[in-house]
Design a protein around this nucleic acid. Sequence first.
DNA 1: AAGTAATCTTACTGGGAAGTAAGGTAGCTC
DNA 2: GAGCTACCTTACTTCCCAGTAAGATTACTT
Lengths: 219, 219
Amino acid sequence: MKEQRKRRVPRRIREQQIIDVAVTVFSKRGYHAASVDEIADLAGISKPMVYLYLDSKEGLFVACLRREAERLVTAFQAAARGQQGPDARLYAGLGAFFGFVSEHRDSWVVLHRQASELSETIAGEVALARRAVMEQVAGLISDGIAESGSTADLREEDADFVAHALVGAADYVTDWMERHPDQAPDTVTLRLMNMLWVGMRNVLNGEAWLPPVAPDPPQ
Amino acid sequence: MKEQRKRRVPRRIREQQIIDVAVTVFSKRGYHAASVDEIADLAGISKPMVYLYLDSKEGLFVACLRREAERLVTAFQAAARGQQGPDARLYAGLGAFFGFVSEHRDSWVVLHRQASELSETIAGEVALARRAVMEQVAGLISDGIAESGSTADLREEDADFVAHALVGAADYVTDWMERHPDQAPDTVTLRLMNMLWVGMRNVLNGEAWLPPVAPDPPQ
DNA sequence: AAGTAATCTTACTGGGAAGTAAGGTAGCTC
DNA sequence: GAGCTACCTTACTTCCCAGTAAGATTACTT
């Protein structure tokens, strides 16, 4: 752990180093199983420093959450902005998402795989981070709905529904990506776009799938 | 916790009672934050009984995992079997999934929201449970591919991809469901089918979405 | 160079939870 | 009713880990 000769480091930078390590450890072990000792150790620092700068284990986790959520949202926005048309924006946003997740897998795990095992205090913070991501996507969707001049009666509620389905699909597809490293993030994005957007477009145009007429009695 | 007058209960039944409680506690607290003391207490029993019957905390968790995975897969299969056509089977399967999840939310949380914070020993078990679910869905998808006589070159890999996207969408939609209790599981199923199946059908038919021609330079 | 503020450490405390030792008690069989 | 087995308990031990007390060292300021 000896970087060099006990060089001292200003707070701003040290905090980021600590958060860097914390994200990987929280991702690998989960919130409770992660120990502040290990994080401090891997950061090449002693435990009281963590408490001095980040207050508590919760504070440290919240700091991770906020930073990674902001990074992801920023990447998403940056990619989507400046694209023409809702489909192009969604495609760009999705691409940014997959790029981010495949490059910062730990960040994603911390942001979205920590549903349980959190104190009430943090739970709200997680919900906030999740919502930030969802809102970005839902925004793009409702743009799409608006611009398509849809005849179907799709409203904000629907955009939210579609956003959930889309983010969920994207999330799980990252698992698939892990087992298919030959597939570039771009390719994956395109596949998903094809699966989803084409469907959405047709739904917007009023094309519908209907269940077959009652083949088996209820219960 | 006094059921009645210290009634003794045969092992078979007691084990199930313990697992019942454990699923809810693991779901609420997460693996590490859950305490065997609490589980034993809520089951109206003392801790050594848990260790006598389930060996260890890990053993208890694995038991939960196995039982709930089997229940879900069974429900899915039962619904899909006997339906005519791949879309009807998928619709029925999805419906069973949402029914199961909305009725046994804890089971689903235990099955799929425990990615991190698991010892190596359990991690494999979780992967196994997840794969069981994925395989059911992927099976239905590739049936769909086969029956559609698709001209596109979709193979098993594609079925796997679509299965991931689909299960992910379904998973996250359960979160949406929680905030929209007025929406019946059936309605939700239909919405998702419309969003996904229509898109898949068109993709199978060769209709494709293509990204707009390079509006911005790489990097 | 003295003073001072920021960075950093060793070495502890306290509590919570996994797992166990040792032994009760109900209900069955003979 | 004697004895056996399955069910069940109280009361520990042990270890891990969040959080802290007390103080050392570096480097900047004047």
